[in-house]
Design a protein around this nucleic acid. Structure first.
Lengths: 213, 213, 213, 213
DNA sequence: CATGAATGAGAATTCATTCAT
DNA sequence: GATGAATGAATTCTCATTCAT
C-alpha cells in the first residue's frame, strides 16, 4: 500500500502532467491553430503518449475550453484588482491598457489562442464563455461609472457603450500585432516604448478626445 | 451550334451559378464556420451538385478567399468614397461608424464570416489579405491626417495609432453583437436607434474625450 | 447531360454496389463476427474503397440492420406462404421444418450472421427487430391454432406456448450445426438424408409425442 | 511475518476478490455485452482498481471463459443429479424443464451472458467449450435412452435427435424471455404460474404430442 | 456544364494491457 | 496485493477532391 506521501506525490505529478498538456496545447494551437493541430501534436509537444491526453481531458475541445477558463480567469482577476484600486480613473485606464498590451509580449502564444481560437469558436460556446467575456466589459464599464460619479468623467455618455471604445481600441492593437499588420522593429526596449506610446495615446484620446479643443 | 446569344446567356448563367455558390457559402460558413462546413453543405444550400463547385473554384479555401476579396473590395470602396468626400472630419467619422455598424444588420452572415473565419484566421492568409485589411486602417488614418492638417484634429497624436481607437471601438461592437454578448431587444426601429446612439457615442468620445473637461 | 437511360443505368449499378456491400458483409461477418470485422474488410471483400461503404450506409451497424431486415423479411414471406397453404397441418409443419433446416445449407453465411450477430445484438435492437422476430412465432402459432380448429391438433394446449417447442427444436438443430456440435459426415446426399430424418423426427415428436402410447 | 492464519485469511480474501470480479463481470456483461463492456466497468462494478483485474485474470477473455466454466459446471451437476435420479422419465423431464426455466428468474444476468456472449460466440470458443455444451445434450439423450429401455418412451426415434426437441423448446423460451419477445405481466406468483404452465406444456407435447390422438 | 459515385488520406477516440510505485 | 498513470495499436468515420459518365 502506498504511503500517503507517495499518493500525494503522485497526485502532484498528475497535476503537473495535466498542466504540461495544457501548456503544450497553447504552444501547438498558437502555431497551427485549433483545427490544424492534432492531438498527437499536443502529446508530442508535451512529451507524452497521446492516449494520456484522454486520461486528463474528455476530448480535444475540452482542452481548449480549459485553457480559456483557467487563463481568462487569471486575466479577469488582474483586471479586477486594477478596478478595485484607489488610484485615479486615468491611472486605472493606463494600467489596464498596459496590462492588455503587454499580455501579447508576455504570453504571446496564449493571446494568439485567445484571439484566434477561442473568440472565434465562441459562437458555439457555452453561455458561460459568453458571460466570462462579458465580465471584462462590465468591469471596465464599472471603472467608467465610478469615474463619472467621482466627477472625473463626463456623465452624459453611457458607460456600457463607452467601454467598447476603450476595450476595442486595445483589442484591435493586439489583434493587429498578432496578425503582423503592425510590425514593430527594434529590440525589447523599442517595443516597450512603442507599447507605452500606444497605451498613452489610447488613454489620451479616450479621455481628452482627438478634436482640437 | 449555339447562337452567340445563347453563348452569352450561358456565360451569364455561369456567373450566376458562381455567385450562387458564393452566396450559399456565406450562409453556410456563417452558420457552421469554415471548418464545420462541408463542400456538400454549400452545394446543397446553392441547390447544385457538389461536384460542380470544383468547376468554379479550385477548392474550398478558394471560396473563402473569393468571398473576402470580392466583398471586402466593395466595402473598401464605400470607405474610400467617404474618405474622399468634402464634408467635415466629424461627418466622415460618423458616416464611417454608421457604415460599419449597419453592415452587420444588412449583411449579418457576411460580417460573421469576415469576423470569424477571415479576420481571425489570417495567420494562414496570404500577405495580400493582410494588406487589404491594412488598407482600411490607412484610409481611416488618412481621414485623421487630413483632419489634423485642416486643424479639425489635434496634431500631437500619431494618426496611425489613433485610427486603431476608432476602428477598434466599432469592430468590437460588431463582434460583440455577433457573439451575442450584446443583446438588443426590440424591433427594427429600436435597433436602429441603438446603433445611432453607439455611432454618436463613439465619435463623441473619439473627438471630445470622456474626461470631464 | 446524361440521357435518362444512362441515369437509370447508373442507378442500377448503384443498387448493385449496395448489394455487393451487403453480400460481402454477410461473408465477412460470418467469417469473423461483427465485432471482429473491420469496415475495410467488408470493403475489400466487396472490391471497393471503404469510403464508399459510408456512401451507402450510415455506419457499420446499419449494414447489420439492413442485412437482417432484408433477409429476414424474405424468410418471413416464405414462412407465410407455407402458413397460407391449404395442405394439412402436418404437411405445413414438415415444410416449415425443411425450410428452416435447409436454410443453413443453402445460405450458411447468412444463417451464421443471424444466429450469432443479430440474435445476439437484439438486446439493444430496436423494437421493430423484436417484433420482426415475434412475427415468426405468431405465424407458427397461427398454423397451430388453425390445426386445433380443424380438429387436427389437441385443443387443450396453448398454441402460443406450443409454437416454442416446434421452433425451438429446429432452431437448436441449426445452431448446433453452425456451432459444429453436430458434425455431419458424408456428401450432399447424406446431409440431405440427415436433415430429412431430423425434420421428420421433430414433426413426429411434435405431433405424436415420444411417450410409448 | 504473517501468521499462518493471517495468510489463510489473505488467501480467502483473494478468492473473495476474484469472485467479486466474476460476479461484477456477469452483471456488466449482461448489461452491455462482452464487447460493450470495458475492463474498467467490471472493476468499478466490483469496487476495485482495474489494474487489479490483471492480477486475477490474464485478460478480459479469460474472465468470460471462467464465468462459463464455473457456472456451467454447476448447472451440469444439477442436470446430472436429475438424470441419475430414480424417478420416472416424465418426472425427470419435468424437473429438467423447471430447472432451466427457473434459471433465468434466479440468475437472470448469468443466463443472459450464457445465451448471448458464450453460447452465441462459440465460434471462437475452444473445443472444450463445445464439448461442455455437448455434455448437456448427451445427458438429456441419456435420460431419453433410459426411458426407451424402460419402455416409457417410443424406441423408434433417435434419442440424439429427440433431445434437441426438448432442449430447443426450453432454450427458446428462455431466449425469448431474455429478448423480451415474451412479456410476462404480473407479479412473482403469476410468473411462476406461467413457467409451470410452459414446463408442463413442453413435457406434455414432448411425451404425448400435439396431434389429436 | 452537371452529377454524384468513388477514393483514400487523415484524425479523433477508445481501451486492453503494462508497469512503476 | 493494489493503484491508476501511461502506452499505443487499432478502428471508425469524415470529407475534400477526382473522375467517369
Amino acid at each position: 500500500m502506498p504511503t500517503p506521501t507517495a499518493t500525494a506525490e503522485r497526485r502532484r505529478q498528475a497535476r503537473d502532467k495535466r498542466q504540461q498538456i495544457l501548456d503544450a496545447a497553447v504552444v501547438v494551437f498558437a502555431r497551427t491553430g485549433y483545427h490544424g493541430s492534432r492531438v498527437s501534436d499536443i502529446a508530442s509537444e508535451a512529451g507524452i503518449a497521446y492516449g494520456l491526453v484522454y486520461h486528463y481531458f474528455k476530448n480535444k475541445e475540452e482542452i481548449l475550453d480549459t485553457i480559456f477558463q483557467e487563463r481568462w480567469g487569471g486575466f479577469l482577476e488582474a483586471v479586477d484588482s486594477i478596478a478595485e484600486g484607489t488610484t485615479s480613473t486615468e491611472d486605472k485606464l493606463l494600467s489596464l491598457a498596459a496590462l492588455i498590451l503587454n499580455a501579447y509580449r508576455v504570453r504571446g502564444d496564449w493571446v494568439k489562442v485567445l484571439v484566434f481560437e477561442i473568440q472565434r469558436s465562441s459562437r458555439f460556446a457555452r453561455p458561460e464563455q459568453i458571460r466570462a467575456v462579458g465580465r471584462l466589459f462590465q468591469t471596465v464599464a464599472g471603472i467608467l461609472r465610478a469615474g463619472q460619479q467621482s466627477g472625473e468623467l463626463r456623465r452624459d455618455l453611457d458607460p456600457d457603450v463607452a467601454c467598447y471604445v476603450f476595450i476595442g481600441a486595445l483589442d484591435i492593437v493586439v489583434t493587429s500585432r498578432v496578425l503582423d499588420v503592425i510590425q514593430i522593429e527594434g529590440g525589447e526596449s523599442e517595443q516597450n516604448e512603442y507599447y507605452l506610446k500606444v497605451a498613452r495615446t489610447v488613454v489620451d484620446i479616450f479621455l481628452n478626445g482627438l478634436g482640437s479643443s
